[in-house]
Design a protein around this nucleic acid. Structure first.
Lengths: 366, 366
DNA sequence: ACGCTAATGGAAACCGTTGTCAGATTCACC
DNA sequence: GGTGAATCTGACAACGGTTTCCATTAGCGT
């Protein structure tokens, strides 16, 4: 047996029909509408197809004719590794893939080349719709997607007029963390966050860069922290924020180092992701700080590893996020009003947060 | 501004040409060959396109004509979550995605519906090639892929005639683990492995099931273990092997429980993945066994979390695996002989393996 | 003025299907 | 053997582009 040898020219539906002495319609029906022709003929068609090495109707031609690509596009952040190394992002991906699988459609990862502003890939993608996840709000790829005449759902992005959207209640979630820390007595805190814009800045973050951040989630979280701490009487302008462009445990560690070197009095490190928090914990250990006795560390996302080590974090339903987006997109038939879906988050207090050292004595000056 | 309102019928290249009073060729050239028409005319074309809300040439029609889909298909195991929850699999995915990004082509995840034997998705995928990863060797989807007249690369699969293949030197890798354990003095070992076939079996594995496993990697690893331990004088038939269909930390834990309940004398648990090993460690802790003093645990894959906790494991270059497969596929121009690429692995001894308790005394009865 | 070359735009074939609709064939049944 | 119903089949027109020649025009040196 073995696979058919691919000689010169591929067989087509037409050539198959000619070989059989039937019309193209009949061959097409043999594949797509078995009830439209006799079982006997169908058997003959399929057998001849096998003999001729005809692989069945060409998917592209079919798509053109039916105006259905059978796939949805996913536009991810420029840096793919960023997405794949973050379990939270992978969770979204998984949820989306599951929704697609349920619907029997493919998931097409659009190659959004980082360097060149090559939007062509967006134009080249044969898809019936797009999901856009975690790209900066000024990304040209996003603009290109919006120009395509197909339904689109955005995840974790600022609202766009007329576009479906799904995201967690980020502000509320961050509020829970802040409230937790404030109630524990922390007043000297530092923040480690992910990239805020497309330009690299592995350093402390100025106020203007904070408020001008192009990554919606990060901006929202920082703003919510500012609000919550200000409300608790902490001067937000005095709270150091360290940014890291790449999103790895090592970067979290180096950020923590930078933060604690400059502000040793800090009692709590707030990280805007669990991955960064893992790094912060490693750095704490490296410098002999006990967590949580000497230093409180919090994360964000609620990834599995965080749970295993007991990280205090805010859990968000990443799988649901992807699934919901997928379902929203795939169900977008003749819906009228665009939908906005907000998913719940949950504070999970672990073993990495405790009152600050200086508060160990019950009375402290106020 | 806002996005163009999609009234009745989409503009097409033809309608745009008519509006402009030029030929379709010219409009097409405006997009694809700017050097073929005057800048002035091109500007006019593009501007009119914007005005009419023409989103540029239809990708599907283009693909049909050019016979290039601009995407490669990825056929994953039936159960998507299985793939996404395993950092090793995600690493492969990442590598593949990176290779695709470099080449500017999309990555199309084929929805291989678990239940129904719905091979149609494979036929429906408009792609220029396929990568097949971690599917059982009797999977109908795999057969369907091989029937498509496009190049294919398989990862971690048994060799197929005429098909490019990339995989780690699994047998050698396992040999290193076995050798390590044997040299530490372990003779009473147990094994925890992933699913061996498409039918669920969350239980001990018979010899026939072992040798008849349809997942190539798992079968290879078990066989290599058998060889290595037999060579060391251990009767492989007496070594218990527990299988888990799902691939989660919890499943690893439950497998370890089942194993240790039945064989408390075991001194080392060999897991065929790090994820399972993490579960085994959790179970050891639960029953008060110290690792490695009371129990040695080893994994496989070398995922990041394993490294962080110091798991003894075999590291395989998962990212490279995906990248290599992608490059192989995308470079398959007029190559003659199919290539087989074997990637190196490396034993990483961590803090979870040590000599067995009973060997603490230098002399022990033989 | 004249021919030659380069630049520019156009006509038509083709990519491989699907879907519609009308016509052909078969068939059971009276 | 006639008749209508049921079942198949075939012709043809899209689907929305790309690409290979060709034709025209413009530029230019002499």
């Amino acid at each position: 047996m073995g696979r058919p040898i691919r000689t010169r020219r591929q067989a087509t539906l037409a050539s198959l029909a000619a070989e059989l002495g039937v019309s193209r319609t009949t061959v097409s029906n043999a594949y797509n509408r078995p009830d439209q022709l006799s079982p006997e003929l169908r058997r003959r068609v399929l057998e001849t197809a096998r003999r001729l090495g005809y692989p069945g109707p060409d998917p592209v031609a079919r798509s053109l004719r039916t105006r259905k690509a059978g796939a949805v596009g996913l536009l991810l952040t420029e840096n793919l590794s960023y997405a794949f190394r973050d379990p939270a992002a992978v969770g979204v991906l998984e949820g989306l893939a599951l929704a697609c699988e349920d619907a029997g459609v493919g998931l097409h990862l659009v190659p959004a080349s980082p360097g060149r502003e090559d939007v062509a890939a967006v134009h080249r993608a044969g898809v019936d719709g797009f999901v856009v996840y975690s790209v900066p709000d000024d990304d040209p790829h996003l603009a290109a997607v919006l120009e395509r005449p197909v339904p689109t759902v955005i995840i974790d992005q600022p609202s766009l007029e007329g576009i479906d959207r799904v995201g967690p209640d980020d502000a509320a979630a961050v509020g829970k963390i802040a409230e937790h820390l404030v109630s524990l007595g922390h007043r000297q805190v530092g923040v480690i966050c992910m990239r805020l814009a497309r330009e690299r800045n592995d350093d402390f973050v100025s106020a203007t860069r904070q408020s001008g951040a192009h990554f919606h989630v990060q901006r929202t979280r920082l703003e919510a922290l500012a609000v919550a701490f200000s409300a608790a009487g902490v001067d937000w302008a005095g709270v150091p924020v360290v940014e890291r462009f790449d999103h790895t445990v090592d970067d979290g560690a180096s950020a923590a180092r930078q933060l604690l070197d400059a502000y040793p009095q800090i009692t709590a490190v707030i990280c805007t992701s669990d991955i960064l928090a893992l790094g912060a914990m490693a750095e704490a250990e490296r410098r002999g700080l006990r967590v949580p006795q000497d230093l409180t560390v919090t994360g964000f996302d609620g990834i599995a590893e965080a749970e295993r080590i007991g990280l205090t974090t805010v859990h968000q339903p990443v799988l649901e996020k992807g699934k919901t987006a997928g379902r929203l997109l795939l169900s977008s038939g003749e819906r009228s009003a665009p939908k906005v879906i907000t998913l719940p988050t949950e504070l999970r207090v672990g073993r990495t947060s405790a009152p600050p050292r200086t508060v160990e004595e019950p009375w402290f000056g106020g």
